[in-house]
Design a protein around this nucleic acid. Sequence first.
DNA 1: ACCTGAACACCGTTCAAGT
DNA 2: ACCTGAACACCGTTCAAGT
Lengths: 240, 240
Amino acid sequence: MPAGRPAKPSRARATARGQLSRAAIVRRTVALADAEGVAAVTIRRLATELRVTPMALYWHFPSKEDLLDAAVDAVLAEVAGVGAAGPWQRRFTALIEELVAALRAHQWVIAAGADRALMREPGLEITDRALDALRDGGFGPQAAANLARSVLHTVLGLVAGDPGPGPTRSAADVADQERRTRQRLESLPADRYPRVVEAAAPLAACADADDYYRAGLDLLLAGVAALAPGSAQRPTAART
Amino acid sequence: MPAGRPAKPSRARATARGQLSRAAIVRRTVALADAEGVAAVTIRRLATELRVTPMALYWHFPSKEDLLDAAVDAVLAEVAGVGAAGPWQRRFTALIEELVAALRAHQWVIAAGADRALMREPGLEITDRALDALRDGGFGPQAAANLARSVLHTVLGLVAGDPGPGPTRSAADVADQERRTRQRLESLPADRYPRVVEAAAPLAACADADDYYRAGLDLLLAGVAALAPGSAQRPTAART
DNA sequence: ACCTGAACACCGTTCAAGT
DNA sequence: ACCTGAACACCGTTCAAGT
């Protein structure tokens, strides 16, 4: 334990002056990452925005990594609110959709270690809800744990591949690149890449992010439904 | 086009002396990333290993990003070998498993932009094979393109969450952390996180990577099978 | 308890030369 | 054509002080 907030916070005086706090630093971190991506998050940059010396942050966090972890936790805490009711598939679907919504709003959390966060305090809420739904779906503890891990990492991968405009790329940039990509794919040798050329337009078209997510979640949830005990369709046929 | 190899490579003299080349640089980059992770890949580090000035690399690549792109392409080129035969599900499964195998051996390619690489030269081979299998499965061009994108990003997410020992963490580290994680999860308040406490052991146990991948691929392929035209089980029941 | 200031050991990259 | 050398504008972080 090299640093961190010691015993007495003395909140009264803290908020009186324009003083630093873990919460304020985390807030700035999330805002900066949302606006310009996680690469823009820099101790020095945060310090100047907070009108403070870079080293001031090191009293509140032992390292930049700990700060980013805290920022990821703050994002995941958004999702752990809504209550659970209804049949297990409905609850599971709702949870995944909440998670996706939170991640879409802060895509940088995936690169910043959202997977580790699922085993820490705010993320455990999500993990528990996922396990609970799967248990009610007939999965045993072991199977539920395995499946939950697969599903959550799958969701992370899906969001990481978000084709829409982000903090880095504007909507115009996206449209521009889509056009260039389509032209490039269309001009490919049709004998070598017949299917790519055929599907050049849909492959390049990343405009509608909602379609992308709907397809991804359909795939995911269809898999979960097919694997559920009691389901008629098992995946054994598809595997060697 | 700021740089890159100009007109005449003059290969004869090049290989005679111990001269740099794009291929040699890429080879070193892949080896270094494999051994110590992508964070260890540094222009300066590569330069000293290649017994050359940092700026020497900039004659062959306009920027570090281009170098990393080339390294990712080199990894994806490994997968684009095996021929395709048999029913579409079998071919699709084989392709995904090849891709997973290549990515597992070079996990850093995901952080280094494997998704973008799927639209460049060596990755297009993979994309085309995926589309071809899905088309034979009855998916239209649009549906196949959407599904292929979802599946590929899902695979990337799965590999990104690989729990096994990597270049950063030794096998002993993994075992150690597993033990600590399990103890932490078991000592959680059982009324707040009942399912997590119940499944503490399987949640913490990331030892067997093969199990992890088997579960993830089962999930994925079950989803694809369920979504295929002609399948009895559509996912509509699971969605709002 | 909370923050400043100077310094260290790094980065990627530009720019001007060398051969 | 291919590479060196010096410099610039950055990083995260340690260490010693200030108040």
